[in-house]
Design a binder for these strands. Structure first.
Lengths: 192, 192
DNA sequence: ACGTTGCGCAACGGTTCCGTAGCGCAATAT
DNA sequence: ATATTGCGCTACGGAACCGTTGCGCAACGT
């Protein structure tokens, strides 16, 4: 039985990779830098991962914010709880940086594209559950498709997150935003 | 009076830069590559621009899609017309690539950040005008802030554009999307 | 206890991009 | 007509990454 790869070294380099990503961004997370900051030899890194991208992707995969689907009884309440969980568990600036960098790498690299989708799914799974519950309660127009409603809900927050980083997310507008979204998705009472 | 820099050379290199950006993306638009594909010597490029970034930014600034604010009489109609103009004037794949790359570079470079905002403003200025007209007509709840409504309208399309490139924008969902957005922004008739 | 084998270290070759230098040529302002 | 000066060419030095090699050491399985 061959001697197994050292779990300690693996931990050290993945930890360092994550630290680098948080501190300096995904692009600063190079093999040389991980080696330098972790104390793990570069050769060892290549014994654990076939190339640098694999290392980075593994590190990113371990960084998913775990958000749970709340159940406050109303869609608006659930949305608010979801967002509070989210902004409480990750630094918006770091998250934004990582998001953009992943999106960028995903342009040319299917590996990163899939990793990006995994992260997205982990973050938006709870949203989907919340939404489906709201639909079951009749809070959402039954003609509206779930995926479609998801896009609709994510949209304004994505704009805030990506394009308006200077705006604090949890300001007075949040309620208005949630209110508008719920209003849009609500079943139409009278006409049509 | 010193001999002026050659306008012909400048045109050639800017054209080449744009061609590269469209064909292979912003990251492929390097000084060496522009020199190679334009036939303009690298040294000449540096006589026209202080560094490679300036060249790229100039090229990008000349690539803005010029969209005009339509006036169909209704917010929904204007929105639809705007989107049709947009998808008719730029290749979504190219636009998406450029958008993400600019966003990425803007993370660390204020020059690119400003260039990105300029492009955004050029594209979304018409949207703002359309929206303001709708507000003047009373199609939008007067309590809603313009910038806020902008974010709300852009959001779902940004999601489509950035995250769901496989989805064609002009499918049946477009009407539904516009319908939902208008529904959300409409003045509340009865309660509250 | 022994030998296999992963680990650390240092260095290398390769690639890509940056920005610069030196030189001959040709266009242009006067 | 001539001198100035931008242009093209080739090459260079430097930086950042990548992935690999060779070697001595130490840890782990048998």
């Amino acid at each position: 039985m061959p001697r197994p790869l050292s779990a300690a070294a693996r931990t050290k380099m993945l930890d360092a990779a994550q630290a680098i990503i948080v501190a300096d961004g995904l692009d600063a997370c190079t093999v040389d830098e991980v080696s330098r900051r972790s104390g793990v030899a570069k050769t060892t890194i290549y014994r654990h991962f076939t190339n640098g991208d694999e290392l980075v992707i593994h590190a990113v995969d371990c960084m998913k914010a775990d958000v749970e689907a709340p159940d406050t009884g109303t869609l608006a309440g659930d949305l608010r709880a979801l967002i509070e969980q989210y902004v409480g568990s990750v630094d918006p600036a770091v998250s934004r940086r990582l998001y953009v960098s992943m999106l960028h790498r995903a342009l040319d690299d299917p590996q990163f594209e899939q990793a990006f989708y995994r992260t997205r799914e982990a973050e938006h799974g709870p949203l989907r559950r919340v939404l489906q519950r709201a639909m079951a309660r009749g809070e959402v127009d039954p003609e509206i498709d779930v995926t479609f409603a998801m896009q609709f809900l994510q949209g304004p927050f994505l704009v805030q997150h990506l394009l308006r980083p200077e705006t604090v997310v949890l300001d007075a507008r949040l309620d208005q935003l949630i209110d508008l979204a719920c209003r849009a998705l609500a079943p139409q009472p009278q006409r049509v």
